[in-house]
């Protein structure tokens, strides 16, 4: 059913540990369900991802965040769903940008110490997945598992 559909995972700043774990988990889960998955992030985030998955077993396609935004704005690429990971105001701002430039169904994956207040500040169209998780990924994983695509 998801064959040929495109999913985008947008990584925020990689300083909170649960992010990388959840990105790898979700990318693998979507891939197994037939989605074409691209993971985008800063140079540092993409390096962390590639170091953890050297043979691209879990994540096959990565892209630089700025290049990806340029491609979406210039209409060279777009997605059916987008998961924007965020734990800071900057991450929330990137989510708003994707909400405006892409036609994808947007999920704001909000985590970290201030997850609840950050989620409240999201006033753009997005489905929110919120868990106050920093080191333990399970609260976030449980909520991600409930998402029906």
């Amino acid at each position: 059913m998801s064959e040929g559909k495109k999913a985008l995972l947008v990584m925020g700043c990689p300083e909170v540990p649960v992010q990388m774990s959840m990105v790898i988990y979700l990318a693998h889960k979507l891939k197994k369900s037939g989605w074409d998955v691209i993971v985008a992030g800063t140079d540092a985030a993409v390096k962390l991802l590639k170091a953890a998955d050297p043979e691209s077993y879990y994540v096959q396609n990565t892209m630089d965040l700025d290049e990806l935004i340029a491609s979406v704005v210039e209409k060279r690429i777009d997605f059916d769903v987008c998961f924007a990971f965020m734990h800071s105001d900057a991450g929330m701002t990137y989510g708003a940008t994707f909400s405006a430039i892409s036609r994808a169904r947007l999920f704001a994956v909000v985590f970290g110490k201030n997850a609840e207040s950050l989620a409240e500040s999201i006033d753009y169209p997005a489905e929110k997945i919120v868990a106050k998780a920093t080191h333990n990924p399970n609260p976030l994983k449980n909520k991600i598992d409930k998402v029906a695509l």
């Binding site: 925020g12 990689p14 300083e15 985030a45 701002t93």
Partner: peptide, 25 residues
């Protein structure tokens, strides 16, 4: 490409353009 929460303000002050620049970290 400007990153931001709409409405994204951009300013003009004399010959200078003021704008927001967002970095994830």
């Amino acid at each position: 490409y400007i990153i931001g929460v709409p409405p994204v303000a951009m300013g003009v002050r004399g010959k200078e353009m003021l704008f927001t620049y967002v970095k994830p970290c």
